[in-house]
């Protein structure tokens, strides 16, 4: 249970980091290390080189771009920073709500947004949010900076579209109007455990507050990549915002296919998915109908 030997690099600039990644064979980037360090300790990962980006300038932070209506989050921004950011609590409360489910406050003090996305655990909360949010991920290399839509980012189990010389540097999250509905629902056997299934919901009402202008529903825990419940979104978009509609939309989760295991068979995960989507839609609708001061941890 000790890390294997590796060559350690701690560059100070993005440029130096990208040069290292382009020159080194078998290099692994470490950010918060809350997934990679356990894998090193258990020797599930044995990289030849560890490139530590904790001392790289300019990779952490939250930037608001009003003309484009996006919030840009630096890849090395700590999860705890997002969780406690007052502007995000007001303008994009789905993010802090989702992050409060990740591990424990001690791991969120280290864990980063980019690290979680690049690790792409099948049940990761931030993966669900990035999917529902239709986030754009920016991957930099010595060759170029590339924008990757979240829908194209997952490539398989713990596998992303990033190439070995690319560094995830930031994500852009498109903003929703003030007072929009949102909810993050998760089922885990113990608080802080990996989710069996989790659902992220965003919802916007029309001006009459009777119909749903648009909504997004994403699920994790059903397979290696997040799943957008587009059929439910299509059913709800433009329709009357009542509980029957929400129930019908949530029931569509049963038609998805899930990868099960001994602990949670596929059928059980789909039952959880329906329940969590129903709860999420109800809570998001309630919040959109009666916008209140967001709960801050």
């Amino acid at each position: 249970m000790k890390p294997p030997p590796f060559h350690y690099h701690d560059p100070r600039t993005v440029e130096d980091t990208l040069h290292l990644l382009s020159e080194l064979d078998d290099a692994k980037v470490i950010a918060g290390g809350q997934s990679l360090m356990p894998m090193l300790n258990m020797r599930l990962a044995q990289p030849g080189h560890l490139v530590d980006i904790n001392r790289v300038d300019g990779l952490a932070g939250i930037g608001w771009y009003e003309p484009e209506q996006v919030v840009r989050i630096g890849a090395a921004t700590r999860q705890r920073t997002i969780e406690k950011d007052p502007d995000l609590a007001r303008r994009y409360p789905l993010l802090p709500e989702a992050i409060s489910h990740i591990g424990h406050f001690q791991t969120r003090n280290r864990g980063t947004v980019g690290g979680s996305l690049a690790h792409l655990d099948a049940s990761a909360e931030l993966v669900a949010v990035a999917s529902a949010a239709e986030a754009t991920l920016y991957a930099a290399s010595t060759r170029a900076v590339r924008a990757i839509p979240m829908a194209d980012f997952p490539r398989g189990h713990l596998t992303t579209d990033l190439t070995s010389d690319e560094l995830l540097v930031a994500i852009d999250v498109p903003l929703w109007p003030d007072g929009h509905g949102y909810a993050f629902e998760e089922f885990a056997r113990r608080h802080g455990d990996f989710a069996l299934v989790a659902a992220a919901v965003l919802l916007e009402l029309d001006t009459t507050h009777r119909s749903i202008r648009r909504c997004r529903v994403s699920l994790v825990g059903l397979g290696p990549a997040p799943i957008r419940l587009t059929k439910a979104e299509e059913l709800l978009n433009g329709g009357v915002a009542d509980d029957d509609a929400l129930r019908s939309a949530a029931a569509l989760a049963r038609n998805l296919s899930a990868v099960g295991d001994d602990a949670a068979p596929a059928e059980y995960r789909l039952a959880l998915a329906e329940t969590l989507v129903r709860r999420g839609l109800r809570r998001a609708l309630r919040r959109a109908t009666q916008p209140t001061t967001p709960e801050v941890n």
């Binding site: 249970m1 360090m37 356990p38 300790n41 406050f105 791991t107 003090n109 280290r110």
Partner: peptide, 21 residues
């Protein structure tokens, strides 16, 4: 030694973290 039990929790620059991670 993989971040679950919390026995190794220490403070680094004022923040509680896992010493094993």
């Amino acid at each position: 030694e993989h971040g679950v039990c919390g026995a190794c929790t220490v403070h680094v620059d004022g923040a509680a973290v896992r010493g094993c991670l």
